[in-house]
Design a protein around this nucleic acid. Sequence first.
DNA 1: TGATTTTGTTAAGGTTATGTTAATGACAGG
DNA 2: CCTGTCATTAACATAACCTTAACAAAATCA
Lengths: 236, 236
Amino acid sequence: MTESILIVEDEISLQETLAYSLKKEGYAVEVIGDGRSALESARKMRPDLIILDIMLPEMDGFEVGRILRKEMSAAILMLTARDDEIDRVVGLEVGADDYLTKPFSMRELLARVKAQLRRTRLLREEMRQTGISEPKHETLKFENLTVNLTRREVTLNDEPIQLKPKEYELLLFFAEHKGQMLSREFVLERVWGWDFIGDSRTVDVHIRWLRQKIEKDAANPVRIVTVRGGGYRFEG
Amino acid sequence: MTESILIVEDEISLQETLAYSLKKEGYAVEVIGDGRSALESARKMRPDLIILDIMLPEMDGFEVGRILRKEMSAAILMLTARDDEIDRVVGLEVGADDYLTKPFSMRELLARVKAQLRRTRLLREEMRQTGISEPKHETLKFENLTVNLTRREVTLNDEPIQLKPKEYELLLFFAEHKGQMLSREFVLERVWGWDFIGDSRTVDVHIRWLRQKIEKDAANPVRIVTVRGGGYRFEG
DNA sequence: TGATTTTGTTAAGGTTATGTTAATGACAGG
DNA sequence: CCTGTCATTAACATAACCTTAACAAAATCA
């Protein structure tokens, strides 16, 4: 399996240098010149790594990174021109996995690319060994509770129940992680989006509403139990 | 639990700068000055990230990195003096996750540390991810005692037992260091956090509670034995 | 043995985490 | 522009928890 890399860079000469060097290393390379097209390409291509310049026409690298980070697990390596962009790049705003400050040597870039892909590969292998990735089921069933993905509908005792959008997403997320303790932070990152800024207690309130709708006795929940000091756990 | 970093660096001034900055960021930091001791420290400490200089007395960074890479999953960030060492560092020989070429700014180091730990965290969470049908749970087992990381649950004779948050974290820490004598101070630093201010006897009290819950006879403990003048040791 | 240090044990008090409700403000659709 | 729905936050209530201090017991030392 050859690994694929998407280069998002508008400077033609750099485009060519990068593409040439990476291809020579055996990667499948695609190049795109502006931010907006980058989104499309990435969605189609599902690359293993994205090399992303900050200065871009149409939509800057911050924004592109922010969006792609949410949508896929590809490693993101950002190219910055200025030192003071580092914090935004690696910090909460984008959450890039690595960065390079211009000017950089090709050797340096190749080294970082290699390191990132190495990590991704390890991750994938682990996931395969533990049998994690699998196709999404049409509906998830738990005794008298079902979550229908295609209809986006939840039933209790075969009766559809009315959930607010966030409640549905939350329940779905818990349902997909049955038996797993989920911290508020993890839930926020995955359901609300990694860039959510706000109080983690928000989760509590939504849990409360969910409980009222899916628990027999909301005051003594058995489906979504709280793990004090940790988070919550869906028991099915 | 706070994330821990092992710094392997012989230059005193750099040691201090690194340790100071990283502690200020909230990490538990330990420093060691030569290659051979680094191995011991790393085995005991089980850090989340290792900052490893190449130039070291006793045993150079290449060798240390090569060995540790095999033994643990900690991220390795190497400090190189020369550009032409990059290939050896990141390539097959060591397999470091990242590197910095001296001289580097503290901001740059912090950014890379943050990015690495973020990845590690994500990777662990992914690994713990259950998938839809039957969860693959990461579990530590000791005869009739199990610690389930995924569920954040402890069972004794297959029956879940109720642990308070600190008790759970404490037991987990001991379980991860089976057979090792752990001083109160070390336990405090890693379980309570390096910035905990207070009496180390606090540990005793929690140990007591743990014993009541996991020992057959709490008055004559065999799982968590006390090492007089030293600390405690988990025997499994 | 008697003195001293270390650890065991317990309970009280302050602290923190979670449950719960309501108010606020954002947003979409009419 | 109004109306209704929803997400978020603040605020308060309650329950669980952690730390400390104090004394007891055990081990160590002189």
